[in-house]
């Protein structure tokens, strides 16, 4: 019987293998090896971590293919890379490079303010950010095989990731409690595909894996997101903008596995050195917020 590649089960399946794990932003092969040795279940290959993208300003684009390729050669774990929202050619380039997952990400400057990439059309799976259930379902409708909260990347401040995860999980709980004849109105209110609204009403869970992202800086932050319903955690600037990246990375991995065990979280949190400097969301001008990119 013929092999079928790029099927929904195969795309979604890789995200299922990442569950209970930590995906770390890296900008060099050396970073990637530190992440792998610390127990990362995948890495995100970038030219700059979000905190530096924020500081640099200007237009942020897909990383140099050479950077991505060298990181792919450095580690045996899956490698993800980011393309701009709606930039399907950047996505095709990343697919041609053979990355394992594409993040259509608000951290980069959007290429299209109305349309996201038609992700069904690719063999490589996509992960996309969301702020609430409606946004999650729009991305899944377009073919995202994995979802993450947007949070507010590059801030080291967990407050937005918490807000977004609560909005998604609360939205699911609400949907479950509705009666069948209320679902179309709810689909309209969420601006989400009716079939997915109906599916979640029946199953009570998202049809794809859902990670937390955007502001995780400490082992306790990571464990908090797991308690709120995340299947795993992305850590961007939080690791390589801290004082001791290798130790912090290993500690966050352990905190995600043992998130229900406060004694272990206490143990791994000892003596990690300075966390990244955080930013209060209120101090960021509205035009510089990343989470509001995409719809």
């Amino acid at each position: 019987m013929a092999e079928a590649k790029g099927t929904w089960a195969v795309k979604k399946g890789l995200a299922q293998m990442l569950k209970g794990g930590v995906i770390m932003d890296v900008v060099t092969p050396e970073h990637a090896r530190i992440a792998e040795e610390a127990g990362a279940c995948a890495v995100m290959a970038l030219e700059r971590v979000p905190a530096d993208i924020r500081a640099a300003g200007g237009v942020a684009r897909m990383a140099d293919p050479d950077v991505v390729q060298r990181i792919m050669e450095a580690v045996t774990i899956p490698v993800m890379a980011k393309c701009r929202i709606g930039h399907f050619v950047e996505a095709r380039v990343l697919e041609a490079l053979g990355v394992d997952y594409i993040d259509e990400s608000e951290v980069l400057t959007p290429a299209d303010e109305s349309h996201h990439v038609d992700k069904h059309d690719f063999t490589i799976p996509f992960v996309c950010g969301c702020r609430d259930l409606g946004e999650a379902l729009r991305r899944i409708g377009e073919g995202a095989a994995m979802i993450r909260t947007k949070g507010e990347a590059g801030t080291g401040n967990i407050v937005e990731a918490v807000r977004h995860m609560r909005a998604v999980m609360g939205g699911i709980r609400r949907l479950k409690g509705l009666s069948k004849d209320e679902l179309m109105a709810e689909a309209k209110a969420l601006a989400a595909p009716y079939d997915l609204v109906k599916e979640i009403h029946e199953t009570g869970v998202l049809p794809v894996v859902n990670f937390a992202a955007g502001g995780v800086a400490t082992p306790a932050d990571a464990a908090l997101m797991m308690h709120l319903g995340a299947d795993g955690v992305f850590v961007g600037s939080g690791i390589f903008k801290s004082e001791d990246p290798a130790r912090r990375a290993a500690a966050i991995v352990k905190a995600v596995t043992h998130y229900r065990d406060p004694k272990i979280i206490a143990e791994v949190s000892k003596g990690l050195g300075e966390a990244m400097t955080g930013i209060d969301i209120k101090d960021i001008p509205e035009s510089e917020l990343l989470a509001t990119r995409g719809w």
Binding site: V10, E95, I124
Partner: peptide, 25 residues
Amino acid sequence: RQVDSYETEIGVPALGGPPFRAVFI
């Protein structure tokens, strides 16, 4: 890599019955 991940049907005599849908990641 992931582009080469696939699903297919395989015969598993020890299980009996129809072929088994195997997802390889």
